[in-house]
Design a protein around this nucleic acid. Structure first.
Lengths: 329, 329
DNA sequence: CCGTATCACTGAAACGGTTCACGACGAAGA
DNA sequence: TCTTCGTCGTGAACCGTTTCAGTGATACGG
């Protein structure tokens, strides 16, 4: 049986101080240098560690940040989650990572559970950034949005999707593509998400013939959607709204015996580490995941520590050209 | 300002009961059917939700399970973490996912932090399963080990690495390979991990000429290690102890202008979804990640709920043959 | 008709910290 | 010498549950 942990009262007893003094001393507050030293020594001696639960109850802060991901089937979001988790650890916080499975209703439920769980803050890559419950939620705890803007957040790392879409579609046009399919992930409740709007506008401007299709989340879902897309009247290029989706196109092309970029060109949108390893390498739009991670961690830390006016970081994309887009004659 | 949450006392007040009765009622204990109904109604009315923190302090259970991963750079471990996180959510628990960065010292520190954090249980894919602190830790909370066996755990999902290694090496031998390099991840403090022992024994039995090299964690590290390995006296095949490492070999081969499997054959060990998308597809040993996830979640749930004798699940590997191993004449 | 179980519920003590209001004491300023 | 002020510490309340020991009832067997 593991012997009971030392409590703050025992440390108080050992030093002849009051528990309050010990509490202050261990946090470096309001006590003389000498007392502090004495308390530290006694604490070390007794192997005392403050109980995070009791501390959370008394102070109202848990040291945890919720991380709500749209769909962790997406490898890029996995990378993002891992990165943020690490970043928070460096700030002595824990990440509570949750996955909405691409389902807006679930996203809502999880967000509320996270609030009930008393996280100090919430980082969200929202499926439905326009949903009505967000502003309300933002009132009760600091929220940082990643990707799309959400009303009422304490901070945002938004992607310049307009620019990203422009980059991608101009690249395709420059290489001679006209009939382009856009493959995006299923977003049941948000048929008109901002990114799609940009696609339409840009397509218009560039004189492209666009067809939009959606893919269920996960590699299998993307593959199925791509399979169907490529079996019909085949576009000359497919622009995927995530590298993960593009992987499904690779898989489908393989199944159908189509060559990339010979029979069909493919563009991604993320730049996941695996994209460079495919044959051919996936041409994609790079969003500098490290920069996003750093910004998100910085923003949520600031907000959770009480400081901070509303900050907004705009992330700029760059083209990562590899071999998956053919030049049409 | 978000109005303060309702407390159990307010519900008690509203129903004319004592807080204790409300507490029991909400958990379906010791009260009459009728009272229960009345309490539920009042709780719903007031929008009452029990505070997890206070509950944790009083009951000693947090509803959280720690998940300590050896290195989340490894894509397979990422998948594992995501899967387990989901599985736990279905049991109304949260996963606290932590990453040891492949560093045994960090692993130790994190394990203890997780205990201090009062998680109800710990799932571990250990870097150093033989470390002395594990048995001690197992005394103070239920631990489930994944991969290698750890002394004192409440449950284990162990991989039959002997069988996995046999499968892989026999496959290489059957296709005519004799000089085989084994690329494993860096395990500073555990130079003689069980898996390596199996490799040596099997190599002996099969008459293979083995060279073992280690790779730092992460794709870049694996690529660098592979680069060096392939630049020297090149083996005919490289057996990688994780698909992630094999990806590094693909990258290095690309850099060096070597063809797979023409110039060098590659075998993985995991079967990550991306392995089938590479060109050529990565021949690997499949560990049925879903089965592992299910087993781990089941074991830790049982253990955390207090039940359960020590259980051990042995995971069997199967060969997943794709195109990355050449038949030598 | 009297013990004795059983049931439904209560009061109060944990759980282990933080924080607020206040006091003692010594130094500095008038 | 008498305020005034700042530093260092204390005692007690509090955070919101759970849980333990007990208390009246009511039912039941003898």
């Amino acid at each position: 049986m593991p012997r009971k942990r030392a409590t703050i009262r025992e440390v108080a007893q050992a030093t002849g101080l009051s528990p309050a003094a010990v509490s202050y001393a261990l946090r470096g507050l309001q006590v003389s240098e000498e007392t502090m030293e004495r308390v530290r020594a006694a604490a070390a001696e007794l192997g005392y560690e403050a109980d995070p639960i009791a501390r959370a109850l008394a102070s109202g802060r848990t040291g945890m940040i919720g991380l709500l991901c749209g769909s962790l089937e997406d490898l890029w979001q996995q990378s993002l989650a891992v990165g943020i988790s690490r970043g928070l650890r460096e700030k002595d916080r824990y990440a509570l990572i949750l996955d909405a499975f691409g389902d807006p209703a679930r996203e809502r439920a999880l967000a509320q559970q996270l609030r009930d769980q008393r996280v100090d803050g919430l980082i969200v890559q929202a499926i439905d950034p326009a949903a009505a419950f967000w502003p309300e939620l933002c009132e009760s705890l600091p929220v940082v949005a990643i990707g799309d803007s959400i009303a009422g957040t304490a901070g945002e790392v938004v992607f310049d999707n307009r620019r990203g879409v422009t980059l991608a579609l101009e690249h395709l046009r420059d290489l001679g593509h006209r009939r382009v399919a856009v493959l995006t992930s299923t977003q049941a409740s948000t048929p008109d998400r901002p990114a799609d709007v940009h696609v339409m506008a840009e397509a218009e401007r560039l004189g492209l013939d666009i067809e939009v299709a959606t893919a269920p989340h996960g590699l299998a879902g993307a593959t199925a959607a791509a399979h169907e897309l490529l079996s019909g009247r085949r576009p000359s290029a497919v622009f995927c709204f995530a590298d993960s989706i593009a992987y499904g196109v690779y898989a489908a092309a393989q199944e159908l015996g189509l060559s990339i970029p010979g029979d069909v060109s493919v563009m991604g949108y993320d730049d996941h580490p695996m994209s460079g390893l495919l044959t051919p390498g996936l041409t994609t739009v790079d969003w500098d995941i490290d920069g996003i991670v750093r910004a998100a961690v910085r923003l949520i830390s600031a907000a959770a520590d009480g400081g901070a006016r509303r900050r907004r970081v705009m992330q700029k994309p760059t083209m990562r050209e590899r071999g998956s887009v053919a030049r049409l004659t």
